[in-house]
Write a protein that binds this DNA or RNA. Structure first.
Lengths: 230, 230
DNA sequence: AAACATAGTGTATTTATTACACTAAGTTTA
DNA sequence: TAAACTTAGTGTAATAAATACACTATGTTT
């Protein structure tokens, strides 16, 4: 196989899979590409890493430039490097993922590379550029695995949430049904949820009590060797 | 920051963390480097990925060339890309890991890049080239996490093993003590261990019954949603 | 005031985990 | 050749965790 060098040969890119949860369903942050390759297609917010930039920092920068999001607490997911995954050259991409509260942020691309950014329900993801559908699947697997063993669901809900909202989140991401009483018993038994003196507003039925997740308490339990599991 | 191009700039490498278990302790496969950088230092078996080579295939090829090992069932671990991790240029490395039966293979480097290959107990790993100590730590974390939730311990033991050997393995990798009766009860309850009509030989005490892991049975249970957990 | 929607609560049963100590089968030693 | 040694192998009771299950409470809308 002959090697015709291009600007894209032997480059690294980063692609971010950002999950949010809104209106009862899990969503992914996608951009519409304004440049080749795959111009006009939806894609994960990703771009080339700079020569003088660490991967983790590159991931944050790229996410910010393409969507306006900051402080997303990105975690590395997997690296995709098939020979022909990029039409313009040999580009391997390191995928990162993160969970965020959708409502806290406004989407606003900072560079023209992205025409727009939007939250798309996981069930409605179209065919994406490159191997990005595969990357999203991998991220979903990871999210589902992690959700069971780490108390990360809260990162997707607003600061204050009701137990029913939390249960909904688990049920809709893991695609399982959970008994209400058992769920409450279990999640409260860990003692990392703080009941607030506050209720839901603007609901047309009995308002639910609100809770918040106390990270410090969780870390204490974790250090003691008490492992969360739903 | 100015960019002085070198042969190593913008290249990808692969580093393999291969675990084995022998004489009651966990070991890692290391090579002695015969080329720059870090000539003479111990390192993980790793090298640059070819331009026309997928990452997974590259990992197998590199492992074979440097150690003689084949069919190691490598799994991707993590990608390390700090700017200064490689003294000769910007090289990001994709780490893979695998568990193998030490006794089944003979170590024999196929190219001069590696002066020799050797199994080194995890507790005695010296300072390695590049960021390879960090990579080994990451692989250890992953191994420990996985050992608890997937029946992978068998990949480190010979085909036929006794329950005590298996328990030893868990205890020495996870650094915990396990009750003998409870361990046996639990591991046998999963029904994926087949008792053989065979006993240990060449031991100077009562010989233990041998078992083998039945992968098909495990996969059946897994499909039924029965999750292994030690 | 009745209908509606979601919040909130307890108990009994089943299943899993833990703690715990002796006998069995071989080998080595005196 | 018997005693000492080494590791294999086994069961039960007590405790803790998971499950199954249905009604009342609180507020809103009609």
């Amino acid at each position: 196989m002959k090697h015709k060098p291009t600007d894209y040969d032997n480059t690294f890119s980063i692609d971010n899979v950002i999950f949010g949860f809104d209106e009862g369903s899990l969503k992914v942050l996608l951009i519409e590409r304004a440049e080749e390759a795959f111009i006009g297609k939806m894609a994960l917010p990703g771009n080339l890493v700079r020569h003088d930039e660490n991967l983790d920092l590159g991931a944050s920068r790229i996410l910010y430039e393409l969507t306006g999001l900051k402080d997303a607490h990105l975690e590395q997911l997997y690296t995709f490097g098939d020979i022909n995954r990029h039409p313009l050259g040999r580009v391997i991409t390191v995928a990162y993922y993160s969970l965020i509260r959708i409502k806290k942020y406004k989407l606003q691309p900072k560079i023209s590379f992205a025409k727009r950014a939007a939250w798309i329900p996981v069930a409605e993801i179209p065919q994406l550029a490159f191997d990005h559908n595969v990357i999203v699947e991998k991220a979903l697997d990871r999210l589902r695995g992690k959700l069971r063993y780490k108390p990360i669901g809260f990162e997707l809900l607003s600061e204050k949430f009701s137990l029913s909202q939390l249960q909904d989140l688990y049920e809709s991401i893991l695609l399982i049904a959970i008994d209400k009483r058992n769920f409450r018993k279990k999640i409260l038994s860990y003692d990392f949820l703080i009941a607030l003196n506050e209720k839901q507003k603007d609901v047309s039925h009995r308002a639910a009590k609100l809770y918040r997740f106390d990270k410090k308490r969780y870390e204490l339990l974790d250090k003691k060797g008490i492992n969360f599991e739903l």
